[in-house]
Write a protein that binds this DNA or RNA. Structure first.
Lengths: 237, 237
DNA sequence: ATATAAACGCTAATCGATAATCGTTGGATG
DNA sequence: CATCCAACGATTATCGATTAGCGTTTATAT
């Protein structure tokens, strides 16, 4: 069997895609042996992939009990925004100068986001939304900052946010919220840019706080999760 | 063989202790088979432990080449402080109220820190220093914030900082730098507390920038690392 | 002496099998 | 009928062995 990269890496990608696409829903069990059989490999690489996903916080395992897709509880959904806000504030301040060269990228991302909104395609929208933010994070040119931000599972969370919003407030489009940031970058003022970034993220945080208050998150997120194992026990493989 | 926790977890602790204590130095190879043999177990749990440590960024692996203790390069040493500063600023703001109940803990930590300084014991000093900060992070009562902060390997970095400083500026004691934070908490003013936290971390960042500029970090850190494998190839096991 | 190629040794990556552990099910007992 | 306990089935955790990849060294030729 010819392979360009290590198997565990391929498995990780596969599972990640499954989680991000919603094929595996929060609470679904990820049984090593079943995944291994389905992919025609042994358990070891699957196990390693799962461990990686645990580190990335997409999956949780209990020793001797197994792995399941992690459910973001309400608390966590809300708690991430203050953290993100401060990180992106810093990024905005640091990035202003270097981001000038990427204004085209940023505008294109916003454009794609708008199209995706009109297509009611939350997944694509999340993709470009994250791309927008990541562009600025990268321009900040601080590896630790970027890695820290990446560790927050922004893409998965953004997808959740947007798909929830698309159901709950079908007419609200977050796309234009990005324009003040681009303007701030154009102005070249680090303080302003940081402030806009922070405000932007905090505003999204407010939106999510509403969603949690209304209790619409679970519905959007996990039809899958059910604490009663007799009624539903998702087996994936 | 009776065991209370999974083997891979024990291995992880063992290796972590080795890294933190400096028994394994940056650049040292961590050979699965040798560690396994030394601990009298098979390679699998060792492998898993290494993967975990990679996720924690204490170790790096190249496919088919193996694992080695990760070296913090100068850039990374400096880059972490702005990030930490913003996270702790947020923590300070959020924690003010709840931290009131922990002022005793904070003062005790500072006290222990001071004693450790007089004993020239950088390791203990780092321990209590981190404990001080972690107390505030926990009081902020935001799991994501705490996890994010934890992911920055603060303890290892602080140890590096303090042991470097102890050599380079034997008379400089960072302990009193913590008092303004305690005062700020006493005042109950979130803005002030956040500001003090941020300033504190940024000040330490400045100290480390100096260290890097003077090029004294490598000496403190890794006598071990040597890019020429013919001259030195650390084998651990 | 230098450059190129083949072969070797070391180590990680993967495999297939076994042991350990958990939750449940079914039966025995009161 | 309710309760406790033992055995079972499912799944993970670990093992020992095999396969594959990389780096170096040795062999060969120029």
């Amino acid at each position: 069997m010819i392979q360009r990269v290590v198997l565990s890496e391929q498995v990780k990608e596969e599972l990640l895609d499954g989680i991000m696409s919603g094929r595996f829903k929060p609470g679904d069990r990820l049984v090593e042996s079943q995944i291994a059989k389905r992919m025609g490999i042994s358990q070891s690489p699957v196990r390693e992939a799962l461990r990686d996903l645990v580190a990335m916080r997409f999956v949780e395992v209990e020793p001797h009990k197994g792995a399941r897709v992690r459910k973001m509880d309400d608390r966590e959904v809300v708690e991430v925004y203050p953290v993100r806000a401060r990180l992106e504030e810093l990024a905005g301040q640091m990035a202003v100068e270097r981001a000038q060269a990427h204004i085209d990228d940023l505008e294109r991302a916003v454009d794609k986001m708008g199209r995706a909104f009109r297509d009611r395609d939350a997944r694509t929208m999340a993709h470009w939304d994250v791309r927008f933010h990541r562009t600025i994070l990268e321009a900040a040119d601080n590896r630790i900052l970027l890695e820290t931000w990446n560790s927050l599972m922004i893409e998965a969370r953004t997808y959740l946010t947007l798909s929830n919003l698309m159901v709950r407030r079908p007419d609200v489009d977050l796309t234009p919220w990005h324009h003040p940031i681009i303007d701030a970058i154009r102005s070249g003022d680090p303080g302003r840019c940081g402030a806009e970034m922070r405000k932007h993220v905090e505003d999204i945080g407010s939106v999510m706080r509403e969603a949690v208050a209304e209790g619409t998150l679970d519905a959007t997120q996990a039809e899958a999760h059910d604490s009663n194992p007799l009624r539903r026990e998702a087996k994936v493989g």
